[in-house]
Each structure stands twice: as C-alpha cells, then as structure tokens.
Design a binder for these strands. Structure first.
Lengths: 252, 252
DNA sequence: ACGGGCGTTGCACATATTGCAACGACTCCG
DNA sequence: CGGAGTCGTTGCAATATGTGCAACGCCCGT
C-alpha cells in the first residue's frame, strides 16, 4: 500500500539471507542506488540494519530487541511459563508452547531439560504446521472456512513416512483431534521424535495456544510418552484457567 | 531521512510495549488516522504486525523469524557455539557470547546448564554495557576516538555499589582490560554474580566478539570463578583460530 | 431506534520521494 | 605513478506518492 515502506521492508528479508552492499540491495529492489541508500539510512537510524566494517549491511540489533520484547509481552506466554517449567520438572522432557497467527504456527516458548544446547533455535520459528501436534490443535479450532482455506494453501512436505501429505488427510486428522481434545505427532516430523499436545483455551473457549511435550524414541517409547498425556492436559487446563481470568479456582 | 519509513518504523517499538488500536497508533505517531492505517496495512502485508481479534495490532511473527534468521547468519555465532557448549560442560556455568554493534553490546548466544528456565530471555537484549565483562572487552578494543565518544554518551546506572559510575573510571578500566587481555565483572551488575570474559579476535586481530562464564556467589566464590579464567581464554582462542580462518592449527 | 466511537474510503493538494547525473573516494593494474 | 573502474554519496528538478480531510459505514451500547 505504501510504496516507500514496502520497499524498505523488502530489504529486511533480503538482508536476513546474508550481508549485502548498497548496489546489491538496489538491484534486488529494482530501484536506483540513491533510493536504496536513503531507505537503508532510515532503517539504520532505527537500528534495524547495521553497517559492518566492509560497508555491507546486516540486520541490526534493534530487531532482536523488538522480537524479544514482543514475545515477553505475549500475555499467554507470561502466564504459561511457570506451568511449562513445572511440567518439564515433572516429566523431564522438552516442553513447547505455540500459537497460531495468520496461517502460521510459531513456538513462543520452550523449556528443555537435558540439553539446553541451541534452546533458542526454534523459538519464533514457524513450526512444521502439517504434522506438529500443537499445530493440529491450533488449526483444528479455526472456523471451518479458514481451516479449509489454510489446509488448501499449505505445502505438505514428506518429512518422514508418517507425515501427512495431502489436505484431505490433514482435515480428517484435524477433525479427529478436535473430537478427542488432544493431539499427538508420532514420528511425523522427525522419525524418532514423538509429541503429545493439549489445548489452552481463552475465556471464550477458543483455543488460544497449545503446549506439548516431546521426546526422542531413545529416551522413551511412544507408548510411555502417551502415558504422560494426562500431565500435559492438566498443565494446559491450569494455564487455561489462569489465562481465561479465574485467578483462584474455587471448589467448582 | 525518509519520512514515511521513519513513521512506519516508529510503530514497531510502540507495539512492542503492547497491543494498540488504530487511533492510539495515530495519536502517538501524531499523524492522521488514515495515514496510520496505511502504514499499518503495509506493515501487515509484510507480516511485521498482526491484527488480533479485537482489531488491535501486535508485532507479527515475521519479526521473530527475521530476528532468528539474522542471528543464525552471524558467522561468529555458528563457529563459536560448539566451543561454548564445551566450556559449559567443562565448568557447569552459564556461558555467554556477545558482540558490539553501534554503541550497544548484545548477547548473541547463551548456554546455561543448571536452570534452562527463561534461557532465551536475554539473547538479543542489550547488555549492561558499563559493567559487563564482555562489554569491557568489546569497548576496550574500539578505536580511541570511538571509545571516548561511546563512553561519553553512555549512562552509568549504579546497579550495585561496585558499578562503574562515570566515564573517567570506565575509560581507565577499559585501558586496564586492554592491557591484561581479559575482563571480569565482580558484582558490578548484580551484587551476587561474577563473570570472567575473554576476547575472540578476527583475522585482522580486532576483537570481534567476547565470551564469558558467569556464576552466582552461592555456587562458586569469585576466587574460584577467576581460577577458571584459563579455560575461558582457551575457549576464546579456539574460537578465534577457527573464526579467523585457520581450519587446523599446525604445531606452529 | 438512536447516538457515539472507531475503522474505512475517495479525493484534491502539495509534500516528500524518486531517478538522474556528476562527484569523490578507493582499488586494482599496467 | 597514473588512469580506468567500482561503488558510495550528493544536489536537484519533476512528479509520483503520501497526506489530511470529510464523509461514510459498521458495530455496540442504551
């Protein structure tokens, strides 16, 4: 809608691929060098891009800070976090929290016990939307129309032999998940990894987020993991209660 | 430099504080509603903002994805990570990796062993630049002029009784740090936390990043932590070697 | 049914953005 | 040492682009 802003924003993903100099940016934007320069300057003033020693541009630190701040201000996340930690301490497995947003599902929190290594690496990243247990729950609760629309738009990569690979199967799975009120992913994303997820609902009853525990086969079998489902659901319910604004849960 | 882009970018930190509706955005930008609308629409198209159910705007998922991608493309980080993990396994303490960027020092990686809780919370965030051990190393290596300029610009919050609180003392400390080739922060940021840091140098000999280990007094005393300094330096040197492009280190 | 609040649209105006061309810094190579 | 080439930067004139206005429409509460 706004040409100038549009052009400026197109620079960011371009730089995300790697550093680029003025001319490369101008070429890829298909604008004059002077135009690209002014856009980059403006982005620079806001700390969105950074100019390294060789004069090439990179994405800037402000971008990280913004993403951080935004994540911390997600109200579900703040409420959920302690519960996720508790679930992690209880089960010892990796715990995820995810939300749906405009055709994507993103992890907004993660607690990992055994290997803190690269823990951040997936927070903020879109998840494998066709197979992840949390994604199933979030998609399953969308209004009929949107759900179908999304299912049609998606690509269905065959991560493993157990991946869902077409819209029809996907929609069927979503229906099943909505029925049973929880979801699992048994080796659909990575052969040796299983997950169990439960929905977190807001005051209106809609699914606002989903949490899951994940573990590789080498640690626990799928059956053992599924046996932990009540714990996951219990956690999700506790978060739901608090999130939907019932500070203390009465005796009913 | 570019008014339109400038206005659009001013929206982002504003939304980082929390969701806002059209009128609030327009008011805080001091522009007409219609203008704000068009800016928000453009941001929306790029996924930088998200419109929640109540029509208010939030920062969008693309922002997270961009920040992620940018971090992963930082070449120092990729190289350093395994070394940081090794250092963590060796010492058991929290390990940080930080870089300097335009007047700020930001953590770009972190490995924490004992409490994976909230691990992400500081990655991407500006660090306490006047006191953190890694910040001292990064600032100490700046060209004289820039170092003085930065020192003059900084604020010097008195985090604790041991914080550096004026530019002169800070510059003196930086000189000392540059001399000795490593840095520490003993309770300067938080009373009970100590850090030891070592510089990571690029092919040109300039300090490209810095890594540190941190631990609270209750776990190890400052003296014990300082005794681990050789390990930190060893790690930093290993990263430096690899980063400056010497794949295998010969026998010299 | 009515009023107020808020988002949205179309339009005329002029301001801010654009591309150009010329300049300057720097590097490479003969 | 000098000249050609590359790439970033600047000032400027033309106009495309963004702006504010006013009117409209939608939703919600009373």
């Amino acid at each position: 809608m706004s040409q100038t802003v549009d052009r400026a924003l197109r620079i960011l993903p371009l730089l995300a691929e790697g550093p680029a100099n003025l001319e490369q940016v101008a070429t890829r934007l298909d604008v004059h060098k002077s135009t690209a320069l002014r856009l980059l300057r403006t982005l620079h003033e806001h700390g969105m891009v950074y100019r390294q020693d060789d004069q090439r541009y990179r994405l800037g630190a402000r971008l990280f800070a913004l993403a951080q701040e935004a994540m911390e201000n997600l109200d579900v996340r703040g409420i959920a976090h302690p519960h996720l930690v508790a679930l992690n301490e209880l089960t010892g497995h990796t715990v995820h929290l995810a939300v749906y947003e405009e055709g994507e599902v993103v992890y907004i929190d993660k607690v990992e016990s055994r290997y803190p290594v690269r823990m951040y690496s997936r927070i903020g990243r879109p998840v494998a939307i066709t197979v992840a247990a949390v994604a199933k729950l979030l998609l399953a609760d969308l209004p009929e129309a949107e759900r179908r629309a999304v299912a049609r738009t998606l690509e269905y990569p065959r991560y493993t032999a157990r991946s869902t690979t077409d819209p029809a199967a996907h929609l069927a799975e979503l229906a099943r998940v909505r029925e049973q009120g929880w979801a699992s992913d048994l080796g659909g994303h990575e052969e040796s990894i299983n997950c169990v997820a439960a929905p977190i609902r807001g005051a209106d009853g809609r699914v606002a987020a989903a949490c899951s525990i994940s573990a590789p086969n080498v640690v626990v079998s799928a059956e053992e993991l599924l046996r932990l489902r009540p714990r996951v659901q219990h956690t999700a319910e506790a978060i739901s209660r608090e999130y939907s604004g019932r500070p203390s849960e009465g005796t009913r």
